[in-house]
Simulated scan of single mutants.
Amino acid sequence: MAAIQPQLNYLYDSRENRRFQRVPVTLFGRYMLESRREYPCQTVEMSPGDMTLFAPVKAQIGEKVVVYLDEIGRFAGVAMRQTDVGFALSMNLPPMKRDKLADQLTWFANRHAFNLPEDRRHERITPLMQRTLVRLPDGQEIIAKIKDISLSGVGIETEARPYLGAKVIIGTTPAVVVRHFEGGIGAEFEKPFHPGDIDESTRL
């Protein structure tokens, strides 16, 4: 079988002031704007010089942003453009941190080629008590079914489609809608649970 070639080379240009090719990668975390407000986020693509985020509240162009990604740590940057689902920021990393990030992105880019399992930020379980009450941004309350739950978020089976970034209350737990899927929504808890807090007996 032919050896799998690492993809590190395409992250770099040979010039000193190099531009980096972005790698599609899904990492979860939080970001803080200059207002000191924090929100959940998810990367869409990333390079050692910039990242594009799926984000419920867009940063203004030129605004300073701090991003903490669960798997790879803290990054500071400046918003350089807005997108339909969030914004992109540029980063000026020290050489050592930039090289480390390039190695990490190479691993993520090659993960599927090596047939490694897709990582999730936290293990998801299906609770025994699946029915819960969801309060929508307009105050409407609906009964929904919990598809799965983790320390950081929950999948809800419902016909309701609150907008991405909408703040909802699931049972008594505040959360933010971060994705839509067929038959339901995904939400990130505003304050993640601690390890050991979530099991099959958990009731939101």
Rank of each mutant, 00 (worst) to 15 (best):
D50G: 05
M51N: 07
M51D: 04
M51V: 03
M51L: 15
T52E: 15
T52C: 07
L53R: 13
F54S: 11
P56V: 10
P56D: 07
P56L: 14
P56T: 12
V57K: 15
K58D: 06
K58P: 15
A59T: 04
A59F: 04
A59S: 07
Q60E: 09
Q60S: 09
I61W: 03
G62N: 03
E63W: 15
E63M: 04
E63F: 12
K64E: 08
K64G: 05
V65Y: 02
V65N: 07
V65C: 13
V66E: 13
V67K: 09
V67E: 05
V67P: 00
L69I: 06
D70L: 08
E71S: 10
E71G: 02
E71N: 06
E71R: 14
I72F: 05
I72H: 03
I72L: 12
A76G: 12
G77E: 10
G77R: 08
V78D: 14
V78R: 13
A79Y: 13
A79L: 08
M80E: 10
M80R: 14
R81S: 08
T83H: 11
T83P: 03
T83C: 09
T83M: 06
D84C: 09
V85L: 04
G86T: 15
G86P: 06
F87P: 02
F87M: 05
A88T: 10
A88S: 05
A88F: 01
S90M: 11
S90D: 08
M91N: 13
M91K: 03
M91I: 08
N92H: 13
L93G: 02
L93C: 02
P94E: 15
P94N: 15
P94S: 11
P94K: 15
P95R: 07
P95Y: 07
M96I: 10
M96V: 09
K97V: 04
K97F: 04
R98N: 08
R98I: 04
D99I: 06
K100V: 13
L101K: 03
L101H: 10
L101I: 02
D103W: 05
Q104S: 08
L105Q: 01
L105V: 12
T106V: 02
T106R: 03
T106Y: 00
F108R: 01
F108C: 01
A109I: 00
A109V: 00
R111S: 02
R111P: 01
R111I: 01
H112Q: 05
A113W: 15
A113D: 10
A113H: 09
F114T: 01
F114C: 06
F114Y: 13
F114A: 03
N115C: 00
L116P: 00
L116G: 00
L116Y: 00
P117V: 00
P117G: 07
P117N: 03
D119H: 02
R120G: 12
R120E: 15
R120P: 06
R120C: 09
R120A: 13
R121L: 11
R121P: 03
R124E: 13
R124F: 06
R124C: 14
T126Q: 12
T126N: 05
T126A: 13
T126E: 09
P127A: 11
P127R: 12
L128S: 04
M129Q: 14
Q130F: 04
Q130N: 11
R131V: 06
R131Q: 10
R131K: 12
T132P: 10
T132Y: 02
T132Q: 15
T132F: 01
T132W: 02
T132M: 09
L133M: 09
L133A: 07
L133N: 11
L136Y: 10
P137F: 03
P137E: 03
Q140L: 05
Q140T: 10
